[in-house]
Amino acid sequence: MLKFSKTLIITAMVWFIPTSLFAASVSFEPPSLVANQAKPFSTTVILNTEGQNLNAIDGTILISEQLASGITLSDSGSVVTYWVQRPEWNAEKRAITFSGTIPGGYTGQAGILFTIIFPPRLGGSVENAAVVASANSYLNDGLGTPARVSVSSFSLETNGAAPVDQEIKDQLFLDDSRPDNIPPEVFSPQVARDDNVFDGKWFINFATTDKQSGISHYEIQETRSGRLNASGWKQVESPYLLQDQDLHSFIYVVAVDRQGNERMIKVFPRNPLTWWQRYSRDLLIGLGLLVVVTTAVIVSRSRNNQKEV
C-alpha cells in the first residue's frame, strides 16, 4: 500500500509539473564532424520543442575565429514560415542572428531552423566551432509566454564524427547538382497599417517557404494600370512601406528561390481607380498622337493644294 501511495504521489507530481519546465532545445545536427573537409560541409540548427507548442524563436550563434570566413546560410526546409530577421551572418562579430515566427505553432523534435554551410578546410579540431550564445522561444498560448530553452554547440574533431540524422538530411536541399524546378509555396501578402510600424503608414507583409533550395529574396512592383514594367521591380524585405499610400495600385510580389524559380502573387488595390483614371495617361498620349498625325495630314494636303494652284 505504501509503495502504491509513493507511486501515485510521484505520478501526480510529474503530471502537474508546468510544461514550461521541460525546456525546448536549440542544437546542431550533426553535432560534430571530422576536422578535415575536402568539400563544403554543413550543420543544421534544430529546434526540439520537448512537447510544447512554440510559435516564435530568436537567437544568436557565435562562430569560431578558425571558421569565420566564407560562411553561407540556407533556410531550406525551415519550420519558420515568417522571418522577422532572416538568418544573417555578421563576419565582423562572427555571429549569426535570427528571429522568426511560426503561425499556428510548431511541436516536434527535429524542426529545421536553418543550415550553416562552411567552405572546405584542412586543420585541427575545433571544440566550439559554433555555439548557440542565446536563444529565446515563446509558447503558442496567445500570451507570448517565454519558454525555457537549452542550447548546445557544434565541433570539429580529429577522429570520427557524429552520424547524420537521415530524416533531417532528407529535408535539406544543399546539393546544387540536384535539380530544383519547383517554385516557392503559394502565399498571401497582407496590406496593413499599424501605429507602431512606419509611423502608421500603409505597408505590406509577405512570407513564404521553399522546401528545396530555400528562399533567396523577394521583389515587388506597384502599378496603377496593372501592367508590369520590366525595369520597375525592387528587391525588398517584409514588411515593405508602400509607395502608393492612396492604395490605388496593383501590387505584385515575387518570391525567388536560390535556384531562380519564382512565385508571383498579385494583390488588387483597396481603392481601385475607374478605367479612365487608370488609362488617362495612355488616353492623353493617344490623343496627342492623333492631333499630331491629323495636323500633319492637314498641312500636307494644304501644301499639295497650293502646288496644284
Rank of each mutant, 00 (worst) to 15 (best):
D141N: 13
G288Q: 10
A68Q: 08
T43C: 11
F250E: 01
A192N: 11
L156V: 08
E219T: 13
E157D: 08
R270L: 07
G226W: 01
G111P: 10
F154L: 13
E88P: 02
D175H: 08
T295S: 15
V297W: 12
S134F: 11
S216N: 06
S213V: 13
V191Y: 02
I17S: 09
A147F: 05
W202H: 04
L283A: 12
S280W: 08
F187N: 09
K307Y: 07
T43V: 07
K6E: 15
T101Q: 10
A95Q: 14
G104P: 11
R301Q: 14
V26F: 00
N53R: 15
S74M: 05
Q66R: 14
Q85W: 03
G105Y: 10
N36P: 04
V236K: 04
N90P: 01
A135K: 07
P163F: 07
L247W: 04
Q190C: 12
G260W: 07
D282T: 04
T7W: 12
Q245N: 08
A161I: 03
W276Q: 09
V45S: 04
G232C: 03
R278S: 00
W15V: 14
I57D: 06
W83A: 05
L273A: 00
E92Y: 06
N304K: 04
G260P: 06
G51P: 06
P146S: 05
T49G: 05
S150W: 06
M264L: 15
R270W: 01
Q212L: 15
A68P: 13
I63K: 12
N36R: 14
I57C: 10
L73W: 00
G214S: 02
S134G: 10
S188K: 15
